[in-house]
């Protein structure tokens, strides 16, 4: 599902014009990223126009689209009466009126997709580690099966391997099922490594939007606005500036090393 925002304004963001294509991994970074997510889930009253696949959507009709767009908060909180993981999923399915044929299998699949063992279903929530709770949260959003996922800073706590595994999962879902993932983060290394596109918000507006390569090539603007750039790009720029040698900003460090090898005198 392609989402277009035309001249959308609210308190924190003004005159937002964005085309969010479908089937992409899109990073959202900068200021007021949660606000953008609130606009996309239509939780926030705004001026301007919102289109889904070219069709204009009115705020009063948003309930028709709740199933197509799912939001995952950065906060982790479970209702106090829920004790085990399994209880949590059942609660989630009932509370959100999810159409879930073959509930048990769907839950097991969701658990498996995020890399948790099946045994976790009987665990009490209290013994889960922070990262396990986050994976649980992500699994529950997968159950909603929306077209668009909005994830608020999901990778903050994960080690490199877990981040990689999740990104691989999202990538597969993008390719196989046409899903769109928007995730907010401060980590520009992560953005450069894994995202297709990036939306950069600053001073209440969209400063830059495009592929990660395009956006991060605007060194002058990014430096002026004091926005962090991926270290590999910073390194490549430094080498160009001091030694007048142009390296390519490879995402895999081994390719960068091969490039250095070719260009070392």
């Amino acid at each position: 599902m392609e989402i277009r925002l035309k001249n959308v304004s609210c308190e924190e963001l003004q005159k937002i014009n964005l085309l969010i294509p479908s089937q992409k991994l899109i990073a959202v970074t900068g200021e007021n990223t949660s606000c953008l997510f609130e606009i996309l889930t239509m939780k926030k009253p705004v001026t301007g126009f919102i289109y889904h696949d070219g069709k204009r959507i009115l705020l009063k009709d948003r309930y028709l689209y709740q199933e197509k767009i799912a939001f995952l908060s950065s906060q982790i909180s479970f209702p106090s009466h829920i004790s085990t993981v399994q209880e949590y999923f059942h609660y989630w399915i009932l509370q959100y009126h999810l159409s879930c044929h073959n509930e048990t299998k769907k839950i097991e699949d969701a658990i498996h997709l995020v890399g948790l063992p099946k045994a976790v279903l009987t665990f009490p929530l209290s013994i889960l580690s922070h990262s396990e709770m986050k994976l649980l949260q992500i699994a529950s959003v997968l159950l909603l099966n929306p077209e668009v996922f909005l994830l608020d800073n999901p990778f903050a706590n994960f080690d490199s391997k877990s981040t990689k595994q999740l990104m691989r999962l999202f990538s597969k879902m993008k390719e196989k099922y046409g899903k769109t993932f928007l995730f907010s983060t401060d980590d520009c290394e992560l953005i450069y490594q894994y995202a297709d596109d990036v939306i950069l918000l600053k001073k209440g507006t969209v400063l830059l939007h495009g592929s990660v390569e395009e956006v991060y090539s605007n060194s002058f603007l990014l430096e002026k606005e004091n926005i962090s750039i991926p270290q590999v790009i910073s390194f490549v720029n430094y080498v160009k500036k001091t030694k007048n040698i142009q390296l390519d900003a490879y995402k895999d460090i081994r390719d960068l090393i091969k490039d250095i090898y070719r260009k070392v005198s």
């Binding site: 080690d159 391997k161 290394e189 991926p230 270290q231 590999v232 390194f235 460090i253 090393i257 250095i260």
Partner: peptide, 15 residues
């Protein structure tokens, strides 16, 4: 064990 080095240190070590 699932931990990646920060870019610059990784580059230095591998070079």
């Amino acid at each position: 064990i699932g931990l990646d080095l920060p870019f610059f240190v990784d580059l230095s070590v591998k070079l």
